[in-house]
Simulated assay, not measured.
Amino acid sequence: MYESSFSAEWSELARDEAVERAYALGVAAACGHDNREEYEAIKAAADSTYDRSLIELSFEQGKSQALQLDASETDHEEIWDRLVESSTVKLPARDGGLPEALAPADLLDRFGQVEGPPSTLNKPSFLVRDDKDNV
């Protein structure tokens, strides 16, 4: 399966290609065509721990998606065609941007709106000591 779509003759892989190959290897492994040597070689060729993590996640995602389709009694060749031949793997943005859910909160933008020195700000009531309670 894997060998019919990807050449084993490579010396270096870009991150995108390594992730795509790992995904395909995961699909192939779930279909009974495990190629552990190629998978380990791709991981070993990664430039960083982050890239190795992406490769591992891509492999596991391919394997998981193929097993889900396999559970629905789909032919292994059809699984391969559906997941590898007709799709592309989505990679995180390279600019290091965070997903919107992890973006800074709007509250942090209010720091520039505070006027005056910090001593003019009122503390919340639970931070104010009351002399009656400190006996």
Rank of each mutant, 00 (worst) to 15 (best):
M1G: 15
M1R: 11
Y2C: 04
E3L: 14
E3R: 14
E3V: 15
S4N: 15
E9A: 12
W10M: 05
W10G: 00
S11M: 15
E12W: 08
E12S: 11
L13W: 01
L13V: 00
A14E: 13
A14W: 03
A14V: 03
R15E: 09
D16R: 08
E20L: 06
A22H: 00
A22Y: 00
Y23N: 05
Y23V: 03
Y23D: 05
A24V: 04
G26V: 07
G26Q: 07
G26A: 06
A28K: 05
A29K: 08
A29D: 15
A30L: 07
H33L: 10
D34Y: 04
D34C: 13
E37D: 13
E38D: 11
E38A: 15
Y39V: 01
A41K: 11
I42R: 07
A44D: 15
A44W: 12
A45L: 14
A45D: 12
A46E: 04
D47W: 15
S48I: 11
T49F: 08
Y50M: 13
D51M: 13
D51I: 11
R52C: 05
S53G: 09
S53E: 11
S53I: 08
E56T: 13
L57C: 08
L57V: 03
S58Y: 04
F59N: 10
E60R: 09
Q61F: 02
Q61I: 04
Q61A: 11
Q61W: 00
G62H: 02
G62F: 01
K63M: 05
K63V: 00
Q65K: 09
Q65W: 01
L67C: 06
L67W: 02
L69N: 00
L69F: 01
D75V: 07
D75Y: 06
H76F: 06
H76I: 08
H76C: 12
E77T: 14
E77Y: 07
I79V: 11
I79D: 01
D81S: 12
L83C: 05
V84M: 06
V84E: 02
E85Q: 14
S86G: 02
V89E: 09
K90R: 12
P92Q: 06
P92Y: 05
R94Q: 14
R94Y: 03
D95W: 03
D95S: 08
G96C: 11
G97I: 06
L98M: 10
A101N: 07
L102S: 09
L107T: 11
L108C: 06
F111Q: 10
F111C: 08
E115K: 12
P117G: 15
P117I: 01
P118T: 00
S119M: 04
L121S: 04
L121H: 06
K123F: 03
P124V: 01
P124A: 00
P124K: 00
P124S: 01
F126H: 07
F126V: 08
L127G: 04
R129C: 11
R129I: 10
D131M: 08
K132P: 04
K132G: 07
N134T: 13
N134F: 14
V135D: 13
